[in-house]
């Protein structure tokens, strides 16, 4: 279980990006974070694996506070948190297989990781994961030759290679066409159920959030304005989440 308590983040002076953010996310559930641009969705997600350092609060993953970890511990924690991105962020001249194997870097010694020395079991597992996301035939293709939807699925396989407890998805479908969107969202929902993962997704598309997620967190100007089951979200709640923010606060959050 992921529990975020009183998370605060300020950029510059007095510009609140996150203000006392509290929420929980359960294994086996897909949780969406929705809200207007610049509300702090990405900041929340990247605070969870500490790619962005927050100012104060607690982030408890199975009762370990991620914020208190030293660099070596943080590496271990990150190894079990998968992350996928809007721009896929694969190493494009490498093959799909090599990119999936990168998911093991956090568990390998420095040298073995540097020179790409992976065991046969690891390669076998990577191939199986590519098969699982439907890309078996593309294992030896360079990633820059794959389509956006395919690259995103390689990204998911890389995250799975980490044996994750949780997968963070930062706008995973913002650059995808409707068909790829459906494929990617179906995979994510299936994974949450089958492997009992915590899946957190930043989304712009409310309809997708309504269709695919179990739990919704609505955020506006760095504050949580709604948290609850997707079935309880109605027009009134959406209006509250997407209400026009104070223009000054929006600029502050985008900085």
């Amino acid at each position: 279980m992921l529990k975020v308590i009183q998370l605060d983040k300020t950029y510059g002076s007095n510009k609140h990006s996150l203000q006392s953010v509290n929420f929980t996310a359960q294994p086996g559930e897909v949780t969406a974070i929705i809200g207007p641009s610049g509300a702090g969705k990405t900041t929340i997600l990247r605070s969870i694996n500490q790619l962005i350092r927050d100012d104060s609060g607690q982030i408890l993953l199975d009762d370990t506070d991620i914020r208190q970890a030293n660099p070596a511990e943080l590496r271990k924690i990150r190894h079990h948190i998968g992350m996928i991105f809007q721009n896929y962020n694969l190493i494009s001249p490498l093959t799909a297989l090599e990119n999936v194997l990168h998911g093991r870097l956090g568990a390998k010694s420095t040298l073995a990781g540097m020179f790409g020395l992976y065991s046969n079991e690891e390669k076998q597992e990577a191939l199986e994961l590519l098969d699982e996301v439907g890309l078996k035939d593309y294992a030896y293709q360079r990633c820059d030759q794959l389509s956006g939807g395919q690259q995103q699925r390689v990204g998911i396989a890389r995250a799975l290679m980490q044996h994750p407890k949780m997968i963070l998805c930062d706008e995973p479908i913002a650059s995808l066409d409707p068909k790829s969107t459906k494929i990617v969202m179906d995979i994510l929902r299936r994974l949450a159920k089958e492997k009992q993962l915590i899946i957190m997704i930043n989304l712009h598309q409310v309809d997708i959030a309504m269709d695919y997620t179990d739990h919704i967190i609505g955020i506006n100007s760095g504050m949580i304005v709604f948290e609850g089951a997707t079935s309880t979200v109605d027009d009134q709640v959406l209006q509250q989440i997407y209400r026009q923010a104070d223009p000054q606060a929006v600029t502050a959050n985008e900085n």
Binding site: H79, N89, I91, S92, P93, H102, G103, L105
Partner: peptide, 28 residues
């Protein structure tokens, strides 16, 4: 793209692994 290197950090890769698995292949 600095985000690509962030993605490797997020996986739990350390500095040398980021350089060898990310920077060098991308820049080669």
């Amino acid at each position: 793209d600095a985000e690509k290197l962030q993605a490797l950090q997020a996986v739990g890769a350390n500095y040398f692994q980021c350089v060898f698995c990310g920077v060098l292949p991308e820049a080669a």
